[in-house]
């Protein structure tokens, strides 16, 4: 086995050429994932609310957006933004930016569904009670429904973040220098240790994603206990 290849290049896997060159490796993966989840949360929240709006002019486009994005492979979305968006925009997007946008657009459709499910899971009495105290529909949504729904949805958001972290590996295909790309660069140069390199980066991804998954499970238990106490 050639574990020394992994050992010698571990710095490159973690940070890329930074600080002497551009940031890459695992650090880039983390940036893509964080930027992606931040954007996807707000976009997904907006689309999810539009999806459950009573106004058809909001509901139908939101539904179409969710169905189209969820029916398309992420790789296709990535290609669309990378190769084809510039044809339409008339200017190019750097690889990392276009990857983040693709990840945001893709993940937001799934977040929108989480938001919808979370709001619909609340008892309708909540909305009725809020309205009867004189709040408008929008006010009731913002001050009463969403705070409860979002709280209950935290575990689902964390799970979506895990998916997103795994999905950042696709950015490699359009040349973003993240962890998978760093691994293939090293693999392409050495050609002697593909097994070791890919096991090493699988473990790196695993550590991050597993910790997040555990966190989501703990939160879920915590939230369930909290709700059970409220009910009794």
């Amino acid at each position: 086995m050639h574990w020394n290849v992994v050992y010698n290049n571990f710095g490159y896997l973690l940070m890329g050429a930074y600080p002497k060159g551009p940031l890459g490796g695992l650090a880039m993966t983390a940036i893509l994932a964080l930027a992606g989840i931040f954007g996807a949360f707000w976009l997904g929240l907006g689309i999810g609310l539009a999806r459950i709006a009573r106004d058809r002019r909001l509901r139908w486009p939101a539904m179409a957006y969710i169905e189209v994005i969820r029916g398309t492979p992420l790789l296709m979305v990535v290609f669309w933004f990378y190769f084809l968006a510039p044809v339409l925009l008339g200017k190019t997007l750097p690889e990392a930016e276009s990857a983040v946008i693709a990840l945001i657009v893709f993940t937001s459709a799934y977040i929108a569904e989480i938001v919808r499910a979370g709001v619909e899971a609340l008892p309708t009495g909540q909305m009725e009670a809020a309205r009867s105290t004189g709040l408008s529909h929008a006010q009731a949504m913002v001050h009463v429904i969403l705070p409860q729904a979002l709280f209950n949805m935290i575990p689902s958001f964390v799970n979506q973040f895990v998916s997103l972290t795994k999905d950042t590996s696709l950015a490699f295909i359009i040349g973003v220098n993240e962890l998978t790309k760093a691994a293939t660069q090293i693999n392409n140069r050495t050609l002697t240790a593909p097994t070791e390199i890919f096991i090493a980066i699988a473990l790196l991804y695993f550590v991050i994603c597993f910790c997040l998954t555990e966190l989501s499970r703990r939160l879920e238990k915590h939230i369930n206990r909290y709700q059970a106490r409220g009910r009794s």
Partner: peptide, 16 residues
Amino acid sequence: KDSQPPFGYVDEKTNQ
């Protein structure tokens, strides 16, 4: 290219 010695590749020592 970043994966094609000797035309263009990432140097092992400098990571450039």
